[in-house]
Design a protein around this nucleic acid. Structure first.
Lengths: 295, 295
DNA sequence: ATCATGGTATAAATCCTCTCTATGACAAAG
DNA sequence: CTTTGTCATAGAGAGGATTTATACCATGAT
């Protein structure tokens, strides 16, 4: 069997035309080179060099081979260079999945500082529903995903990242409710605003209401935190929202939070990773940073 | 230092996605493959495979590398194939130098049988003067040369191949000379036909005449055996020719040989080879055959 | 001629790397 | 809960590459 190392030795020898010099270049001794060349010649069944008194000289066969070997090793060299470049994060790509609201309110601040530090890493954000994100992580199309917990962890590792506190928020027209403490029952009879059917927030709310023996049946379904806040402040109804996401509206007095009889349970969010696949060099520092803050 | 063998192992592993299978393909054990991959990863400083529970899977870096390695090893493969083809003499080339007359009368018969046996070897004949041929052998542009001896053997090996007998030939108008035995002196006074100044035949003749205290001064100089024979048979004079080369003309009676007082010394011819360079695979059998017949 | 120089080949001992055996750990599937 | 298939690891071992030392050869200078 041909040892590919012999080709490297062959190349140096062919270029220098001198076993001794080739040996020096390769940091080995001359007999070592002599031996390797002989092995290669034996394996190929041809003489590759004429041994002259002042060095060696490629035979026709050797000349023919040299072209191939040069190209081959050059390609490998290019490969190694590419890898080295990727190692310096140059070619890196960070693929994150998250819901729209988590992207905006949780991910964005982290991404900003991360991108400053690693400007060469291309960030690809995939907005999507939790279960879709998890699926894509399983398939290796995403490096990680920011999802609401609990998440079906088939083949995934979930790192809890912290909790978000949801609440019910309304605008001026419902100001009279501010002084009261509302039961789930009462809430369910008010006009409710919420995300659409299959969002995790919606599912969470339905489950909670069900546990309280009520039904969560929103009158208006909307697709983003912004729209819900907007509609609520206009008085269309009571919106179920994450408190942290509407800080601005609260501070400005456009929204206020309703008191509930029983506190809305906090919802954990977590970072989902593939349980076996190792993180790419580009993803590693990002994930590390994320987990540092809230492990 | 990266061992190029690792790349071969990497390639098989990447293709099978399974260390165990790669190991089988390579006729080694699984830990061996595991070890090699780890070495390569350590040397490159990146992880090349995700280790999953049902095999391995290329990382981004691994995928990037794979293309290079595939190409590289394919090129080497092509090289080995080419060499194998050359070994079967397919790509062989036999470069012979010789004078015009030796080509026609000595080389041709050998070349015919040789070409029948090795039809794939391209034969390149270089007609030329002896010293030019020797020079080109020294430079490696010719594999061998058929030359008149003695030849200046600087850096060359000369194998004697046999002797050629020269003689003086004339046509019908000189028939009256046929019964006599001529001295060199007498010959020099007859109209002589010969090769041009720097041909080895001419030099040989001049030296011989000088040794006999005469001068060899041809009236007509011509460039080929055929022309000399033609002119001689037409009666232009006496031609100095190699006997074996004019057999046909002798048999047909168009020429006859003159008797000389002292026999023309035979001239040796030889095969000149480079003293250090090994013969190419294409040249080897030809030279062997040539030397077999007349060593 | 003789010697010095610069090159390769060879022999034998050594060393190191790769390979193997054996085993562990882990996940998936039955 | 066992079986099966996978990779990782440890330790022993073998064998090939490397080194050291030397021979050999051609060349060119003394």
């Amino acid at each position: 069997m041909i040892n590919l190392e012999w080709y490297r030795i062959f190349l140096h020898t062919a270029r220098t035309g001198n076993l001794t010099h080739a040996a020096k270049e390769l940091y080995v001794t001359q007999p070592s080179v002599s031996y390797a060349i002989k092995q290669l010649e034996a394996e190929l069944g041809v003489t590759l060099f004429h041994r002259l008194s002042k060095g060696v000289e490629l035979t026709e066969e050797g000349k023919a081979l040299l072209g191939f070997v040069e190209e081959s090793l050059a390609v490998l060299d290019a490969g190694e260079t590419r890898i080295a470049a990727m190692k310096r994060l140059g070619g890196g790509e960070l693929r994150i999945g998250a819901s729209q609201s988590l992207i905006k309110h949780v991910l964005l601040p982290h991404l900003n500082t991360f991108h400053e530090e690693y400007p060469d890493i291309r960030i690809r954000l995939s907005p999507g529903k939790t279960n879709i994100i998890l699926q894509r992580i399983r398939e290796g199309q995403l490096d990680c995903g920011l999802v609401h917990l609990p998440a079906a962890g088939e083949g995934l590792t979930i790192h809890p990242l912290g909790e978000l506190q949801d609440g019910f928020f309304a605008g001026a027209p419902f100001r009279h409710l501010a002084e009261r403490t509302l039961s789930t029952q009462e809430l369910s009879e008010l006009p409710l605003l919420s995300f659409s059917e299959d969002s995790s927030t919606r599912i969470f709310a339905e489950q909670w209401f069900a546990a309280e023996h009520s039904a969560f049946e929103p009158d208006i379904e909307l697709g983003s935190v912004e729209l819900l806040a907007e509609f609520a402040s206009e008085g269309f109804g009571i919106a179920l929202l994450t408190r942290a996401f509407v800080q601005k509206e609260l501070a400005a007095g456009r929204l206020f939070e309703l008191q509930t009889e029983r506190p809305v349970p906090p919802r954990a969010i977590g970072l989902a990773l593939h349980h076996e696949r190792k993180l790419s060099l580009a993803a590693r520092p990002f994930v590390d940073r994320l987990l540092e803050n809230a492990p």
